[in-house]
C-alpha cells in the first residue's frame, strides 16, 4: 500500500483512513472472549445463542440507524419474515441450514426493498410510524394465514439437518451457539467492511447531512434503499437463525416487542460503531436474566424502568464510556510501536 512517491500529507491521510479499519486490541480481545465463552461457559450456551441472535438483529438496525440515520420501529418485519421463510424452507424444501440462512436473508431483503420506498420521504416521526405499520401488517398477515404459518399456534415440525452434514443441533445448544457465533462474526466482518467502504462513507454523509450529501453528488434515496435492503437481509438472517436454533416459530417474531427489543438493545450498547448491538444484547440479556431471577413474571416492569432512566440520564453515556476505553487501548498500542 505504501507508495514511495507519496507526499507526507498523503501518508498522513492513509494513516487516518486506516484507523477505523485496523483491528484494535480491544476488538481482538472482544472476539477472543467470545471464542473463550464457547469453551468456558458450556452451561450457558442456550442463553448465549439468544444473545448472539439478538446481537445480529441489533446489528441490522445499526446499519440503518447508526450509519444512515434511519429510525425504525419495525425491524421485526424483516426478522419475522426471515424466520418464517427459513422455517417453511426447512419443512417444504430441505433442512440444510446454510441455504436456509440465505433464504432468510433473501426474504428479509425483499421485504425491506419493497417497503424502503415508503421511508424516503418524511421525517423521523413518519418513518417510525411507517415501519411500525409495515410490521403490524405482516404480523396480521401471518396471524391470518394460518394454513401457511400455523397462525397463533406457531409453525411446528421444523427439522434442521446437521451443519455441513457434520454437526448436529444438540439439546444443550453447543452446536447452535458455535453456529450463531460464527454467523455473527461473518456478518460483523462484512458490516465492518461495508461501513468503511466508499459506500459506507456515503451513508455516513447521508446520516450527518442529507442536504449536503446530495449537493456533493451522493444519490441519497438510492443509498437509503440499498442500506435498508442490506439491513433487511441481516434481520432476515437473524430470524432464520432463530428458527434453526429454536426449531419453532411463534408470531412473536413479527411482534412489536421484537422490534422494540432490537431497538432497545442497540441503544443500550449505542449505535454507530457496530459493537453496540453485541454489547447491548449481552447487557440486555444479563439484566433480563437477573431480573427474572427474582421476579420471573414481571421482569419487564424493571426493564421498562431502566429504559426510562436510561433515556432520562442520556443514552450517550454508556457508549461514550466504551469509545473512551477503546480509544485508550488504541492509544496505548500506538505508543508501544
Amino acid at each position: 500500500m505504501a507508495k514511495t512517491d507519496m507526499t507526507p500529507n498523503g501518508a498522513k491521510v492513509v494513516k487516518i483512513m486506516r484507523r477505523p479499519v485496523r483491528w484494535s486490541l480491544a476488538e481482538i480481545a472482544f472476539w477472543l472472549l467470545a471464542v473463550a465463552s464457547v469453551f468456558l461457559l458450556p452451561g450457558q450456551h442456550l442463553i448465549l445463542t439468544e444473545i448472539a441472535g439478538l446481537a445480529i438483529l441489533a446489528l441490522s438496525l445499526d446499519l440503518i440507524l447508526g450509519y444512515a440515520g434511519v429510525v425504525s420501529l419495525g425491524q421485526a418485519a424483516m426478522y419475522g419474515v426471515g424466520a418464517y421463510a427459513a422455517g417453511l424452507y426447512a419443512i417444504h424444501v430441505t433442512g440444510e441450514p446454510l441455504s436456509g440462512l440465505l433464504v432468510g436473508a433473501a426474504a428479509g431483503a425483499v421485504i425491506a426493498f419493497a417497503t424502503s420506498f415508503l421511508l424516503l420521504r418524511g421525517a423521523d416521526l413518519t418513518r417510525l410510524m411507517v415501519t411500525l405499520g409495515v410490521a403490524a401488517v405482516l404480523f396480521e398477515v401471518a396471524n391470518k394465514a394460518a394454513w401457511l404459518t400455523g397462525g397463533a399456534d406457531g409453525l411446528q415440525g421444523i427439522w434442521i439437518d446437521p451443519i455441513l452434514g457434520l454437526f448436529d443441533f444438540d439439546l444443550e445448544g453447543h452446536t447452535g451457539y458455535v453456529y450463531s457465533l460464527t454467523v455473527l462474526f461473518v456478518l460483523f466482518v462484512i458490516a465492518r467492511l461495508v461501513v468503511n467502504s466508499p459506500f459506507g462513507y456515503s451513508l455516513k454523509a447521508v446520516r450527518d447531512n442529507p442536504l449536503r450529501a446530495s449537493a456533493v453528488g451522493v444519490p441519497v434515496n438510492a443509498r437509503l434503499v440499498a442500506v435498508y435492503t442490506l439491513s433487511g437481509a441481516y434481520a432476515g438472517i437473524a430470524g432464520a437463525l432463530f428458527t434453526q436454533t429454536q426449531q419453532f416459530i411463534s408470531l412473536d417474531v413479527l411482534s412489536f416487542q421484537k422490534s422494540a427489543d432490537g431497538l432497545m438493545v442497540l441503544t443500550i450498547g449505542g449505535p454507530g460503531y457496530l459493537y453496540g448491538g453485541m454489547i447491548g444484547a449481552l447487557a440486555y440479556k444479563l439484566i433480563q436474566d437477573a431480573l427474572s431471577g427474582f421476579t420471573p413474571q414481571y421482569w419487564q416492569f424493571w426493564v421498562g424502568l431502566l429504559l426510562v432512566i436510561f433515556v432520562l440520564v442520556g443514552r450517550d453515556r454508556p457508549r461514550q464510556f466504551v469509545i473512551d476505553v477503546m480509544a485508550r487501548l488504541r492509544g496505548g498500542k500506538g505508543g508501544a510501536q
Binding site: L65, V71, L73, A123, D124, L125, L128, A260, L263, M264, T267, V303, G304, L305, L306, L307, V308, F310, V311, L312, R315
Partner: peptide
Amino acid sequence: PLDQVLFSIG
C-alpha cells in the same frame, strides 16, 4: 424522536 419512542416504550 428516538429517545421519545424509547422512553414511552419503557
